[in-house]
């Protein structure tokens, strides 16, 4: 039964009319969808990278800021 089903699907997919229809469907919407999918994946990764870099930068700025705060300021009239 399963073999017949696979054979049937295979025959359907190999039929010229089916292939032409699939090609047309891809040309009409599939290519846009795949492009959008790829753009989305890259875009989401891109946001994480940029935000990650900004977060790292803020962490470094905070550390520098805290170190400067800890350093005691010498009194102006020490001399």
């Amino acid at each position: 039964m399963l073999q017949r089903l696979i054979l049937g699907v295979g025959l359907l997919l190999s039929a010229e009319t089916t292939q032409a229809a699939l090609r047309e469907a891809y040309a009409r919407s599939g290519s846009d969808f795949i492009n959008a999918l790829l753009m989305s994946a890259v875009g989401l990764i891109g946001i994480f990278v940029v935000i990650g870099v900004i977060a790292l930068m803020v962490t470094v700025l905070n550390k520098i800021g805290r170190k400067k705060d800890k350093k005691p300021k010498p009194p102006k009239d020490a001399a």
């Binding site: 959008a36 753009m39 875009g43 989401l44 946001i47 994480f48 935000i51 990650g52 977060a55 905070n62």
Partner: peptide, 21 residues
Amino acid sequence: SNPKLMLFGAAAQFGIFFTFS
């Protein structure tokens, strides 16, 4: 004061990219 929180802002843009597709 808590820069790690920024990553959630990135994650919550998922809807944009999902809707795009």
